[in-house]
Structure formats: structure tokens, C-alpha cells
Design a protein around this nucleic acid. Structure first.
Lengths: 205, 205, 205, 205
DNA sequence: GATGAATGAGAATTCATTCAT
DNA sequence: GATGAATGAATTCTCATTCAT
């Protein structure tokens, strides 16, 4: 006979599993059809669960989408942070960041679509959160630029503006690729890196 | 006694007026609440017309939004094209283009919101069109960059990529300003211009 | 200078013409798409007039349809009455009636469709009228059967029932032909006549 | 503790019950007001359910009506087929068929109205189906007539035409009774039987 | 009389969410 | 926890009819 505590742990693990399954299904569903066109029915079907089960784990369609968004942002920030940590020197760090970002976008098309493109009407809490997460990412970039300025690798400048430019540039390129995948996204890394580095005044390689 | 032809012309003019009134109302409504949250009721009320009248002039909510989108794009392209024509020299043309774009965005907040932010679910024909219009604008930029490359003002490069970078950068900055208007958008023009020019290899002023 | 009376007569004639034009257009439109699926717009277009003009001549869509129905019934009754008047002898009269009815249906497919098939929801005033007209036609048949009984050509019987049977039989055959025109309707006249005559006890030819 | 399978079966049974309840409500509603004048609201109210529930069981108003139509036709065909099987001899079979048909019509006024009278605009899929079902019933009659001809009980003739005549005749009589119920429908059976038998050349009883 | 833009009361259908089992 | 039938408020689009010109 298992102890109550063990049973509780088992139950919790199973719950977590179901939650992950739903999230996974939601990712596919939302990426495939967009927020509005995706019905809770679609997510449920994709997850192999009933609609009711969705509501056991998430209080609403919106919250489900929000959780997805947070996931996407966290994944992205993790990857980029690690990439930067692994690189040495200002220029290398920037290049690593870009490369890891584009790699992540390329590997996780679904999340990318959700994070960069999908919308639920540009005014609701969902779009608000999406913008905040995007702003957080932009701020991450800004901090590295600030460091580079502090270390003298970069001339003093409006790093917030520069970070926004970088964010917008990357987003545009990625979305363009999502809409019309031609060559692998990786292949534009060198040129995009050059462009962005030049934009902030890094002397060319 | 007015002739039948005159009466016809008068009626036609009035019809055109109503159409414009609806478009105007739609602009406000969509900008305020987004595509999905905006009801035809809202547009009708905003226009001071009945819902039915909307359908006399536009076959569907979607077509109405599309008309709005086309309007926004046409306005923008016109303005930018004129600005560029009025400037002399590669660098000046670029600066003029940017300035006129940002000016237009600043003056027509509603249209800007509709054009750059608003979405109707990223998969439908609306988003498709929005992306096409955006691509057309990007292409306009690319052509000027090509000219600059041809004239030797700019080193040879992937101008399509550069144009996408510019488009994304401007969009990001404008959207950030829309979400949190701080200083006038115009004020960032010089720095944004520098950044973008540097990105393509224009020697700094 | 024309007298007022003349002018009045001219105007009246023109009005009558327009009314006929509308009726003609309505006949085609209703026969083609049915009562509900036919829009006043369709009738107007078919008539080459504006929707408003329709309402000058008919107070409502329903009244327009009713007028059509009355037309169809009147045409039919006229034709049949004349045909009967031109034939001599009980059996010949019946045969002439049937033949003229089927001829009329065949020649005026539109009116036939409107009269025998088209419906506007089986409960409204339109269906009521359609049934009354049909009942009137049935009654016409009954009167001739009564005559035949009175003259001893036919055994005494429930002529109202017999008339209903005839009406239903003819209607069914005609509608079947309308839905799937194969051989000319005329060709079934001899056999149908035999069947119906036999049904009331006429000795076969 | 009920097993999941048992619970499933229970739920399924309940679902079937609801479906039947809706069909029943629809029968009344459509018979009372006709297809177009009947709103889904009416059916829902009649069924004591929400409008949404209707759409859980039937995809559209049209499909609901179609299901009703199929029901009516199946009931009718069953009844007639059984009645014929239970009778012996050509004449008796015909009489039994007619009697059972009229009985069924009399007992199920609602379905009869729906099957013989109600229309949804004579052009749509609904009318198409109604005509097909009617044609199937006519064909059933034709087959028995063919048998009678084959067995020598009836002279050779166009049995398809005769079947149509019978169908139309019965329909007309029934509809007349529906519109103005006087004496019980059963009472006309003997005379109607005589008429129809005579029409195909059966010697009178 | 004719026109056709405008009206407005519908009507069908949708879908996130709930809850009895 | 899971199920899925039921809910019901929401929403787009329709179309007979009106009326200022």
C-alpha cells in the first residue's frame, strides 16, 4: 500500500503531464489556425482529451494562450542567455545571441508563430502580454548593448532605440521566413549580424 | 428643374460621402478595439448609420477592413514616394523617406494601428493582405537601396534583407511609440536614420 | 394639346404596361427560384425597374405573388372552359378538358410551376389562396362530372371525391414532368384520359 | 459503482432521447407554421431546450427538417408494406395499402403535413428530397401494379403513369382533408379504392 | 412615377464555458 | 479528474419595405 504522500506525488506528476499535453496540443492548434479560429474543441481533440479536461487545467482559452506565450518567451530567453554566456567578446556575444535566436525560431516554428505573429485582437490582455514579453526580450538586448557601450566596444548611443531596431529587424526577417520559407533561416545569420552590428557602430569584421 | 443626369450625379456624390463616412467610422472603431472586438454595430453607431447601410457599401466586415487597409497602405506609399522625390542625393532621400513615414504614422495614429498592429487572426485573408501590403512597402524601400547600390553610394549587399530590416525596425519603433507615446515620434528620426544608414554601410554624416 | 382625359388615358395605359412588365418578370423570377429565394431585387432587375417601382404597383411581395397566382388560375380556367365548350358529348368534353389543361401547363411552364409547385410556406395567405384556386378548379371539374351524372353518361357517385382524384392525378403527372421533362406532356393525354375516365366508370372507348 | 462503459451507454441513451425530443418538437413546430415561419427558437422552446442544443444534434435547420422528412417516409413505407403483406389477392392488397396509407396519414397529421404539404421553397435540397421520397413511394405502388399485371389480374398498361395517378389522387384527397377535416379520412377509403381500382381496369367488386 | 440608399427587425449559427454524471 | 451534452449570449448578415430626391 502506497503512502498518501506517495499517491499525492504520483497524482501531481500525472496532472503535470496532462497539463503539458494540453500545452503541446494548444501550441500546434494555435500555430495552425490562429487564436480566434482555434476552437477549444480543436485543442481538446489535438490533445486527445475532452473539452472539460482543458478547463480543469486552464481557467479559460485566454489563459491557455497566455501560458503558451510565457513558455515561448521563457524558451527564447533561456536559449539566448545561454548562447551569450558561452561566447566571449562583445562581437561574438552579439553574433551568438542572434544565431541562437534564429536557431530557436527555426526549430520551434509553432512557438515562433505564436510569439511573433499570432494575435487575438490587438487590444486585449493577450496582446498586452505579448508586447510585454517582447519588450522584456528587447530589454535583454539593450542590457548587452549597454555593457558593450560601457566596455568601450561601442560608441555611446540610445541603446533602447537600437535594441528596438534589432528586435524589429529580427522579427520581420523571421516572420517573412515563416510566411515564405525559402532558404534555411540560419543562412541569413551572417549578413543579418553584419547589418545589425554596423547599425550600432561596430566596425565590420 | 434638375435633369435626371444631374440628380444621378448628386446621388452618386452622396453615396461616395456615405462610403467615406463608414470608412472613417471603421477606422476609429477598428483602431480602438481591434478587428474581432469591433462589432458592425459599433461601426454603424460610430457612423451614425444603420447596420444595414454598412452592407450597402461593403459586402462584409472583412471587406470593410480590407478597404481600410488598402487606404492606409496607399496613403503611406504616396507620402513616402513624394518625400523621396523631393529630396536630392541618396542619403537625403533615405532620411526624407524615414521622416515622412514616421510623420505619416504620427499623424494618422488610427490608420497606423490598423496597418501595423491590428490583426484578425494571423491566418485569414486579412492578415494575408496586410502582409502583402507590408511586403510591397518593403519592396519600395528595396528599390531605393538598389538604386543607391547601382550609383555606388552603397556597397553591394542583400538589399532585400536590408529592406526587411528597415521595415521591421521602423515598425517596431512606431508600435512601441503607439503603445507608450512618450516624446514625439519625430524626435527619433535622426537617430533612427543614423542607425539604419549605418546598417547598410552608409558612412555616417 | 391633348385633353386632360386623353392624357389620363395614356398614363393609365402606361401604368398598365408597367404592371404587366412586373408581373412577367415576377413570373420568371418566382418560377426560377421559388418564393422565398426570390428577392424583390431579382424581380426588379428582371423587369428592368427599380425596387421602388415594384411597390408603386404592388403593395408587397406577397400581393405580387398572389396576383401571379390569380393570373395563372384565370388563364387555366379560361382555357379549359373554352376547350370544353368546343367539344360535344360527355366523353369528348372530358378529353378536351384534360388535353387543354395539359397543353396549358406545357406551354406556360413558369405559371405552372408557380401554380402547382411553388409555395411560400404552407401556412400563410399565399398557400391559402393557392389552395382556394385549386379548389375552384376542382369544383369546375366536379360540375362537369355532375352534368355527366345528370345526363346518365356516368353512374351516380361522389363527384367531389372524383374531381379531387382527377385534380391530384393531373397535378402529380404534371409536376413529375416539370421536375424531369422526358417526352412531351401531350403524349400522356390519351392514357391519362383513359385512366381518369375509367376511374369514374366511363366505359372504355 | 457503474463502470465507465455503463456510464457511456447511459449517456448515449440519453443523447438519443434528446434527439427524439427535438425531432418531436420539430414535427409539431414545422407542421404548425411551415418551414420558413418556424424559427429554431420555436423548436427549441417546444423541446424545452436551448437553441444551442439543437445544433448539438442537427447541424442545421435544413438537416433537422430533412431528418423529419425521412422519418415520415420511412413510417409510411413500413406501414404500407406491412399492410400489403398481410392481405391476400391483388384487389385486397391494393385496398389494404390504401387503407393503411390513409390510416397512417390520419394518425400522424403532423408528419403528413410535413410530408405532403410543407415546403421550403420548391427549389432547395429539401424539396428535392421530398420529391425523391414521394417518387420512391410511387415506385412502391408501381411495383405492386406490375405484379398485378404479371399475374394477369390487371391488363397491361403504363404502370408508372398509373402509380403517379394514384399517388396524386391520394395526396390530393388527404391534403383536402387536412385543410378541412370533415368526416374521418377512413370513410372515403371504399370509394377511393373503387375509383383507383377502376382507373387501372380492375373489374368492380 | 421612378429611383436606390437607408432602414431595422430579424434569424441562423457559433462557441467559450458549465456541470451533472 | 474526465466527460461531453447543454447553455445562451453574441454576432454577422439578410431583405422586405420606406422615403427623400
Amino acid at each position: 500500500m502506497r503512502s498518501a504522500a506517495t499517491a499525492g506525488r504520483v497524482r501531481e506528476a500525472r496532472k503535470e503531464q496532462t497539463r503539458a499535453r494540453i500545452l503541446e496540443a494548444a501550441r500546434r492548434a494555435f500555430a495552425a489556425r490562429g487564436f480566434h479560429a482555434t476552437l477549444m474543441d480543436h485543442v481538446a481533440q489535438q490533445a486527445g482529451l475532452s473539452k472539460g479536461a482543458l478547463y480543469v487545467h486552464f481557467p479559460s482559452k485566454e489563459e491557455l494562450f497566455l501560458a503558451l506565450l510565457d513558455d515561448a518567451a521563457a524558451t527564447l530567453v533561456d536559449r539566448i542567455t545561454q548562447a551569450i554566456a558561452g561566447a566571449h567578446g562583445g562581437r561574438a556575444k552579439v553574433a551568438a545571441a542572434l544565431e541562437s535566436a534564429l536557431d530557436t525560431f527555426e526549430e520551434h516554428e509553432d512557438l515562433t508563430w505564436v510569439f511573433l505573429v499570432e494575435s487575438s485582437g490587438a487590444r486585449g490582455p493577450v496582446e498586452q502580454r505579448r508586447w510585454e514579453l517582447r519588450a522584456a526580450l528587447t530589454d535583454l538586448v539593450r542590457r548587452y548593448l549597454d555593457e558593450a557601450v560601457a566596455s568601450g566596444d561601442l560608441p555611446p548611443q540610445d541603446t533602447a532605440l537600437a535594441a528596438a531596431v534589432w528586435m524589429g529587424a529580427v522579427s520581420e526577417v523571421v516572420v517573412g521566413w515563416l510566411r515564405q520559407p525559402s532558404r534555411p533561416l540560419r543562412d541569413v545569420v551572417p549578413q543579418l549580424t553584419s547589418l545589425l552590428l554596423r547599425s550600432v557602430g561596430f566596425p565590420d569584421a
